[in-house]
Design a protein around this nucleic acid. Structure first.
Lengths: 213, 213, 213, 213
DNA sequence: AATGAATGAGGCTTCATTCAT
DNA sequence: TATGAATGAAGCCTCATTCAT
C-alpha cells in the first residue's frame, strides 16, 4: 500500500502530524493543515490511515518508538556497567539532548497523557511506562542490594520519583508553559545553563535516593 | 425555567464546565454537553459569559483561585513555625486530600499547561507559578541559612525539583494516565496506600534537599 | 390590556420599533434592542403584540396613518380650489417638510416595498396607494377636461409618473443611498437647496403633464 | 459529488444567491436554502466565498456588472448619433426588456438601496450611480446647448428626474409591490401594455425636459 | 494510486418567545 | 401586570471524510 508515497513522504507525514497533534491537541489538529505542511494531499492520508484516530495512533506509536530508542541508549550505558551516578547523569543529560533534538515528542507525550483523544490513555500507559519502570526499578533494586542507596525507599517508588523528575524536566525543556515555569522557579540564568541544571538534578536525585559514595 | 440561575446553578455550570474542559480540552469541550450536564439551556451560558473563550477563562480563574486556597492553607502551616519536614509532609498530604476532593482542578491545570486553548499559557504561568515558587524558595533559602539543607543546592532549583515532584503527584492522583503510571511504577498496593506514599515522598524530598536532622 | 404602559410609552414603543424596522429591515430588527430603546421590557411587547410580525404590522399601520395624514393635508389645499401648479408645488413642498420631520416613515415605506417581512406587500399596496392614486388621478382628469394638460396623457399614468417622482424625492430626502444618489446627479449644492429642487421639480412635472398657462 | 463545481454550477450558485438576497434581504437570506436551491452543499459556498458577506458582495458585484452592461447597450445607441427622443425611447424600452429578462437584479438593487446589508450603501451609490448620472447629464447638457430642451432645467437635475422615472419603472416591472402599485395607478390593462406605457413615458419625459421638435 | 474539491454533520452563537416572579 | 432571565430552534461556519478524476 505504498506505491507512490515514498518512505520519505510517509515519514514526513507522520512528523508533521506529530508536530500538529503535539501543539494543538487531538481536536485542535487539522488534517488539511497536516496534509499541506507535509506536502501531500488530504486524500492520501486516508489511504494510509483509517481516520484521524488512526493517524493519531500512528503518531503515538512513533512517539513510543522514539522513547524506546532513547531508553535503549541509556540501557547501553547501563550495560557497560556504569554506576548509579553515571547512570543518573546519563539520563539527565539525555533529557536535555533529546528535548533539544525532538521536543515535539515530549509535547506529544504530554498530549497523550491529557487523554483528549478517543482512545484510553490507560492502555498506553502500560505500553509506554512499563519498560522504563522496569529498567529503573531493576537498577535501584540492585543498588539497594549493594547497599548503595537507602533501603527504606522502595525501589519502585524511588524509580517513580526519579522518573517524575525526569518527566518534568522533559516538559520544562519541551513545553512552553513548563519552560516558563522553570524560569520562574530557577531564574532564567540558571535555567539556561544545562550543565548547572544537570549537576543540581544529579545531586538532588542521588541525595533523594540516599546514595552513598 | 426559573427566574434566574441560582448561585447554586451558576456554580454547577462552572463546575460542569471545568469537568468538561478538564477531560476534553478546550476544543473537545462541547457547550451543549456542558449545558445539558449542568441542567441549563445553551443560551443561558451566553448571559453569563461572552463566548466559549470567556467560559474557559472563568474556569481557569476558578482553578487558580482553588490553587491559591490550597497554597494559603500550607502558608498557614508555615506561619505556625513548622520545620521543613513538617512543611514537606503537610504539602504532600495536601496533594492527596485536594486531589481527592477536586481532581478536576488538577486535570484542568494539566490542560492549561498543554496550551491548547486560545490564550497563551505563558501569561498564566506567571500567575499560577510565581506564588508557590516564591514560597518554596523562601522556605529553602531560610533552611540553607540555618544550615539544615545542602547549601550546594540552589534554593530556586531545589524548590523547582520539589514542586516538580508535587506536581507529578497531583497528576498521579488526578489524571487517569498518571494514576496508571504510578501503579506501574509502585505497584497497585503501594500506590494505593497514601500513608506509605507520603512517607516515601517525604523521605525522598528531604534526602534530596540534603536535610539534616 | 393597557394598565401600566401609558399611552405615551406605547407610542414610544411603536416609534422606536419603526426606527428599528426602517433602518434594519424586518429580519435585522431586534426586539430586545427595540425594548431597550423604548424603555420597556421585552416581555411587555408580547402583551400588546402577538409576535414580531404583529409588531411590524402595527408599525406599518402607523406608517399608513401618517401617510394618510400627509395626503389629507394636500387634500385640504386641493379643496380650497388650488390650481394644478399650486397643487404640485404643495405636494413637492410637503415631501420636503414631511421628510424633514419624519424620514423614518419613508424609510419604513421603502422597507415595506422590499417585501422582506412575512406578509405580502400586495395587500398593502392596495391600502397604501389607492387613496393617493385616486386623488391624483381625479385632479389630472379634471385638468384634462379643463384642457390644461396634454390630453394624450392618460390621467392614471400621468398620476403614476408624478407620484413616481414624488416617491423618489421622498427616498432622496430620507434614505442615505438615495440622498447620495441625488448628490451625485444634481451636485451637493443644488441638492441641498430645497427651493431650487422644488422649482425644478415643479417645472419638470408641469412640463411633463403638458400643463398650459 | 463532482470533482469541481462547473462554471455552470458556480453561475447557478450566484444566481440562486441573488434571487435569495433579492427576495429576502441580507439578513433574511439563508445559506442552507441557497445551497439547496443551487443544488450544492453548504460547505462548498465557503470554498468560493469567505462568508455570507462575501457571497453578498459577489452578488452585488454581479448586479453592478449587469447594470453596466445594460448602460453600455444604451451607450451604443447614443454613439450612433441618436437624437434625444430616440435615446429616451431606447432607455425606456430597455427597462422593459431587462426587467423581463432579469427582474431579480432590480429587486437586488432595491435591497442594496435599503442598506440592510453589512456594507455601507454610500460607497456603492458612487459606483452604481455615477456612470449613468454622467451619461444622462452629458446628453442633456448637449441638448441644452442645442436649444432642444428647456435651459432653465439644470441638466443634472433633469437627469436625476429622468433616472428617477426609469428607476421607478424598473421597480414597477420587477418588484411585486411596485407592480401592484402600477396597476392601481394605471389600471391593469394599460399597465400591461408595454407599448402604451412606453409611449406615455417617452411623452412625459420629453415634455418634462421641454424638448422641442 | 494520488488529488483536492465537495459533502454534510456538528459546533458555536443569536434571538424570538416564554414564563416565574 | 410588567419584568427580564431562561429557553431552544435555527443560522452560520468548520472540518473530518468521501469520491470523481
Amino acid at each position: 500500500m505504498l506505491k507512490k508515497l515514498t518512505e520519505e513522504q510517509q515519514a514526513r507525514l507522520i512528523d508533521t502530524a506529530i508536530l500538529e497533534f503535539a501543539d494543538k491537541g487531538f481536536k485542535g489538529a487539522g488534517l488539511s493543515r497536516i496534509a499541506k505542511n507535509a506536502g501531500v494531499s488530504v486524500g492520501v492520508i486516508y489511504k494510509y490511515y483509517e481516520d484521524k484516530d488512526a493517524l493519531f495512533a500512528a503518531c503515538v506509536k512513533n512517539t513510543l518508538d522514539y522513547l524506546d530508542t532513547v531508553l535503549q541508549q541509556v540501557g547501553a550505558v547501563d550495560a557497560q556497567g556504569a554506576d548509579l551516578p553515571e547512570l543518573v547523569r546519563a539520563l539527565v543529560h539525555q533529557v536535555q539532548t533529546s528535548c533539544k533534538d525532538h521536543p515535539e515528542y515530549f509535547r506529544m507525550y504530554h498530549q497523550i497523557t491529557a487523554g483528549n483523544a478517543s482512545e484510553q490513555g490507560e492502555k498506553l500507559a502500560e505500553l509506554i511506562e512499563r519498560p522504563s519502570a522496569q529498567a529503573y526499578k531493576a537498577a535501584l533494586t540492585k543498588a539497594v542490594e549493594d547497599r548503595r542507596i537507602d533501603e527504606r525507599l522502595d525501589p519502585g517508588v524511588g524509580a517513580f520519583f526519579f522518573d517524575n523528575l525526569l518527566m518534568m524536566l522533559h516538559y520544562a525543556y519541551s513545553c512552553s508553559y513548563y519552560k516558563e515555569r522553570m524560569d520562574i522557579y530557577c531564574g532564567k540564568q540558571l535555567a539556561a545553563s544545562e550543565e548547572k541544571m544537570e549537576d543540581q538534578m544529579v545531586r538532588f536525585v542521588l541525595n533523594g535516593l540516599g546514595y552513598k559514595e
